Amino acid sequence: MSQIVIVSGSPSALSRSERILYYLGDLAEEEGYSVKHISVKDIDAEDLLFANFNSPKIKEIAETLEKADGIIVDSPVYKASYSGVLKALFDILPQDVLQDTYVLPVMTGGSSSHLLALDYALKPLLATMKAQNLKGLYYKDSDIDKTGNHVIVDEDVLNRTKKQVNYFLEKIKGNIGGFIVK
C-alpha cells in the first residue's frame, strides 16, 4: 500500500490548517492510500531551537519522509511566509529528504492577499529539499469551517481541492520504484 505523509507546520492546537490536512488525508485514504500525520507540535521544541540533528524524533521523521510515496505539506501564513517552526524542522532534515517525491504544498491565510506566499515562500523551501512540487492549494480562513461537518464551505474551492488531490494521487501512481515516470 502506498503511503502519503502529511506534514503540518501549524503550531496551533486547533487550526484551520490542521482541519484541511485531515480532510486531505481522508480523501487519500478513500482512494486506498495509508496516511501518516507529522506535526511540528509533536517535536521537542529544544530539538528544533537548538538544531538537534541527532534527535531520535528528527531521524524518525527523516526516515518516514524518505520512504513516503507522496507528501502533503501545510502551513498557515505568518508574515507573508510559512511558519518559523516548519522552517526550523526543514532546516535540520537532510537536504535531499524529499528527492524525487511529489509534494502537494498547502497554505492557509486570512485573505487572498497572502496567496503568493505559496509560490514565493513554501514552494522554494520544498524545492531546496529536492521535492517535485505540484501546483498546490491555498485556502482563505473564510473557506474553512473549523467545527462543522463540511470542512470546505465554498463549492468551487471544494472542487478545486478534489481535482488537485486527484492529480497528486495520479502523479504518485506514475512514480515507480523511486523514479518519476514521464
Score class of each variant (00 low, 15 high):
E63H: 05
L86T: 13
A127R: 15
S75D: 14
K57G: 03
L24C: 11
L122P: 15
L116E: 04
G148R: 02
Y102N: 14
L65G: 13
E29G: 07
G148Y: 00
V73E: 06
P76W: 06
G109I: 06
E30C: 01
S39H: 08
L48S: 08
S81P: 12
V40Q: 10
D143C: 03
V73K: 08
I38H: 10
P76N: 06
I71K: 07
S15T: 05
H150I: 03
L122A: 09
L49P: 00
S111R: 02
Y138N: 03
V40H: 10
I152D: 03
V85A: 08
P94D: 05
S83R: 11
A88S: 15
G110E: 11
H37V: 12
S142M: 00
D143W: 00
P124G: 12
S12H: 07
L86P: 13
E29C: 06
L14A: 06
F90L: 12
S112C: 00
Y82P: 04
L89H: 09
G109K: 08
L65R: 14
G9L: 13
S142D: 01
N54G: 09
L49T: 14
I72A: 14
E29K: 14
V40A: 09
L125Y: 04
A131W: 08
N149A: 00
V153T: 15
L86K: 03
Y33G: 10
T128R: 10
L116G: 02
A13L: 06
A127E: 12
L14P: 00
N133M: 03
Q132C: 05
N133C: 15
S83V: 13
D74I: 03
I43V: 14
I20S: 02
I20N: 01
P124Q: 09
K67Y: 06
K57I: 09
K146M: 05
A117H: 02
V153F: 02
V97R: 12
F53H: 04
L86M: 09
T64D: 15
A13V: 11
L134P: 15
Y120D: 01
K135I: 04
I72E: 14
A131M: 13
L48H: 12
G70H: 07
K130E: 15
L86F: 07
H114T: 09
I144D: 02
L125S: 05
E31I: 00
E29H: 03
S8A: 13
H150W: 01
S112I: 04
S142E: 03
I43Q: 07
S81H: 14
